[in-house]
Amino acid sequence: MGRVALVTGGSRGIGAAISEALKAAGYSVAANYAGNDEAAQKFTAETGIKTYKWSVADYDACKAGIAAVEADLGPVDVLVNNAGITRDAPFHKMTPQQWREVIDTNLTGVFNMTHNVWGGMRDRKFGRIVTISSVNGQKGQFAQANYSASKAGDIGFSRALAQEGARNNVTVNVVAPGYIATDMVMAVPEKVREAIIAQIPVGRLGEATEIARAVVFLASDEAGFITGSTISANGGQFFS
């Protein structure tokens, strides 16, 4: 295929599954990560996918990081905005720092990454932007005003940008996962997991590979008529 895909937060959890699925589909894949050097090194050793360290919240770091990826692999054809953080707290206890950190990574980070590949995609008349939102960006969640706002913002951003990229064959779409069996979710107490699963009509947590398959489809040539869309992969927990 010869196309280059860059996945932010791509060395762990859902991001790692996406990186591996894109590689299996024939893409040259670069995985960005923010801070866990040990996990990134292990991921590269196991998969052969090179990792690149920078914070998506820093515009200049994104610009430099993307330049490094493109020097190694070539122009980025597919960008998967997967990097995200949580700083949960009831709103009356939420600090300005908790708000800013989540918005800076989950929403401004999507701008920072997309803005630095957008011109090249338009010039080459091909591009795929896929952003990972969340069911909680669609329905909201207690103690996640910051996270829900950022993930809802990702959807609005993508719908607007899809209209700008369409004539240049640059599609912009969203996958909104529900609760997925990542290390973070599996680490919560069993009773909490059981309560979560009870709200999911299919009766189980999702798998990271299920999200990855949706991303691979949206990145493909076959998905060229799909833009501005949100795939809700949540087991029927919420419909939009």
Results as ranks from 00 to 15, higher is better:
Ala57Val: 07
Ile226Val: 14
Asn106Lys: 07
Arg122Gln: 11
Gly203Asn: 05
Met184Asp: 09
Lys139Thr: 09
Met186Glu: 15
Arg3Leu: 10
Arg128His: 14
Gly13Arg: 00
Asp221Ser: 03
Val4Ile: 11
Trp99Asp: 14
Asp88Phe: 02
Asn146His: 12
Thr44His: 08
Ile129Tyr: 08
Asp37Asn: 08
His115Phe: 08
Lys151Asn: 10
Val135Thr: 13
Thr105Ala: 11
Val7Lys: 08
Ala195Leu: 12
Arg159Asp: 01
Val130Ala: 12
Ala214Thr: 04
Ile180Cys: 07
Gly127Arg: 01
Leu161Lys: 10
Arg100Ala: 10
Lys63Ser: 11
Val202Thr: 03
Ala143Val: 03
Ile197Ser: 07
Asp123Thr: 13
Ala83Pro: 06
Asp60Phe: 02
Gly10Leu: 03
Met184Cys: 12
Ala64Leu: 06
Gly206Ile: 14
Pro96Tyr: 05
Trp118Asp: 01
Leu79Cys: 03
Ala24Asp: 09
Pro177His: 05
Asp72Pro: 05
Phe217Lys: 01
Tyr27Leu: 05
Tyr52Glu: 09
Gln199Thr: 13
Ile211Val: 12
Tyr27Gln: 03
Asn112His: 14
Arg124Val: 09
Ser11Val: 11
Gln144Ile: 09
Ala223Val: 07
Ile200Ala: 00
Gly35Lys: 00
Ala61Tyr: 01
Val175Met: 06
Asn112Gln: 07
Asn146Ala: 13
Arg3Glu: 15
Gly74Val: 02
Thr227Ala: 02
Ala83Met: 09
Trp54Asn: 02
Val4Lys: 06
Asp221Leu: 01
Glu20Pro: 05
Ala143Gly: 09
Thr8Arg: 04
Thr230Arg: 00
Ile49Ala: 00
Asn136Leu: 11
Asn36Leu: 04
Val172Tyr: 01
Ala45Gly: 15
Glu190Asn: 07
Ile18Thr: 03
Asp183Arg: 14
Val110Trp: 01
Ser133Trp: 07
Phe91Ser: 09
Arg3Tyr: 15
Asn106His: 10
Asp60Ile: 04
Ala25Leu: 11
Val216Leu: 03
Lys50Ala: 12
